[in-house]
């Protein structure tokens, strides 16, 4: 059964999007990416640091034929995000951009007003825009209206591994969205990812939970399995919750008779 993720007219078999931060090395990143089955990875754009040697991250991902989704991480307002997006387009030749604007370094929560503003400009400029947002159903709608490709509501603050703290709001976004919903940030365990898919998420984005694991490659495999399990469960249809027991076996009736 074909169950592809479609983003901006492109089809993907994997619904797990990975971040590239916090990996021990480019080699571990590449091995993890392979083990995760991910076909999309995100990365930031920064001024070249001429003093320190930086790990090359573009080449190892391209070798795996992974689609690059640059992000505007570090931008504190719409103007900086737009500039970062245009730099990334020039650097990588892609019009995909994950818009991330978080002025507050403690919680790294996205600024909704600057995000909406930046997305308007970038959509008009021909970008395929993927905004990272608070799990705000109203904002998700507004972004959908201006033509973003998908929305990326957060489960919890970036890197916090708290899971889907915003579950009820993500649920509303999932119910009303006409664009793919990618649950991003806060996913700390494979079970969090599975839950997102069981709820109907189209994709999830995971970074810290994999990269900061003692065995990133093994954790990548765990996430791959969890994403697939959650998605299959959603497609199959989950059991309806009930407050009382419902017998799973017709034997119960028979036993009742026998006990009389």
């Amino acid at each position: 059964m074909s169950d592809k993720l479609v983003l901006a007219g492109r089809e993907f078999d994997s619904r797990l999007i990975i971040g590239t931060g916090k990996y021990a090395s480019a080699e571990v990143l590449q091995k993890s990416a392979l083990a995760s089955g991910a076909q999309i990875a995100t990365m930031a754009v920064k001024r070249v640091d001429v003093k320190t040697h930086q790990d090359e991250i573009v080449a190892p991902l391209k070798e795996l034929n992974i689609t690059l989704m640059p992000n505007t991480s570090g931008a504190k307002n719409a103007r900086e995000a737009i500039f970062a997006a245009r730099l990334a387009r020039e650097a990588l030749g892609t019009d995909w951009i994950k818009v991330e604007i978080h002025p507050d370094v403690r919680y790294l929560l996205p600024d909704p007003i600057e995000t909406l503003e930046a997305c308007k400009v970038l959509v008009e400029d021909g970008f395929k825009v993927f905004p990272y947002i608070q799990a705000d159903p109203v904002l998700a709608r507004r972004l959908e209206e201006i033509g973003v490709i998908a929305v990326m509501p957060l489960g919890a603050p970036i890197g916090s591994a708290q899971g889907l703290q915003t579950k009820a709001m993500i649920d509303i976004i999932l119910k009303q969205s006409h664009v793919p919903v990618i649950v991003d940030a806060g996913i700390g365990a494979p079970s969090d990812a599975a839950l997102a898919f069981e709820m109907g998420a189209d994709a999830v984005m995971v970074n810290t939970a994999i990269a900061a694991s003692a065995d990133a490659v093994l954790m990548s495999e765990a996430f791959k399995a969890a994403c697939e399990a959650g998605r299959k469960a959603y497609k199959a249809g989950l059991a309806i919750k009930s407050t009382s027991a419902k017998a799973t076996s017709p034997m119960e009736a028979f036993l009742k008779e026998a006990m009389k």
């Binding site: 931060g21 916090k22 920064k46 001024r47 930086q54 730099l87 984005m205």
Partner: peptide, 10 residues
Amino acid sequence: VDVYNMVSGG
């Protein structure tokens, strides 16, 4: 003159 490249990040 500012030169930028891609760096790791989520």
